[in-house]
Amino acid sequence: MKGPRYPAEYGDRFIDCEADLEAEILAVLELAEAAGWGRPEAIAAITSLADNIALGDAAMADGWERLQKALKHNRGEN
Rank of each mutant, 00 (worst) to 15 (best):
M1D: 09
M1Y: 06
K2N: 08
K2S: 10
G3E: 03
G3R: 02
G3M: 04
P4R: 04
R5W: 06
Y6S: 02
Y6E: 05
P7V: 01
A8T: 10
A8Q: 12
E9D: 14
E9Q: 11
G11F: 14
G11H: 11
D12I: 02
R13E: 10
F14E: 10
F14D: 11
I15N: 04
I15W: 04
I15L: 11
I15T: 13
C17P: 00
C17I: 08
C17L: 10
E18H: 08
D20Q: 13
D20W: 07
L21Q: 13
E22F: 12
E22I: 02
A23G: 08
A23R: 12
A23Y: 07
E24C: 04
E24S: 12
E24L: 12
E24R: 07
E24N: 07
I25A: 03
L26C: 13
A27P: 00
L29A: 02
L29K: 00
E30K: 15
L31F: 03
E33C: 12
E33Q: 13
E33D: 06
A34N: 15
A34Q: 15
A35H: 11
A35P: 01
G36T: 08
G38K: 05
R39G: 01
R39D: 01
R39C: 02
P40A: 07
P40V: 02
P40N: 04
E41D: 14
A42R: 00
I43K: 02
I43W: 00
I46K: 00
I46M: 01
T47A: 10
T47C: 06
T47P: 00
S48K: 09
S48N: 10
S48V: 08
D51I: 11
D51N: 06
N52S: 12
I53K: 04
A54L: 12
L55E: 13
G56C: 03
D57Q: 08
D57E: 15
A58Q: 07
A58V: 03
A59F: 04
A59D: 14
M60Y: 03
M60L: 14
A61Q: 06
G63L: 07
G63D: 10
G63F: 03
W64R: 13
W64Q: 09
E65K: 11
R66W: 02
R66T: 03
Q68K: 12
Q68E: 15
Q68N: 06
K69S: 09
K72V: 00
K72L: 14
N74V: 05
N74Q: 15
N74R: 15
N74L: 15
R75D: 12
G76Y: 02
G76H: 06
G76C: 03
E77C: 03
E77F: 09
E77M: 12
E77I: 01
N78S: 14
N78E: 12
N78R: 13
N78Y: 06
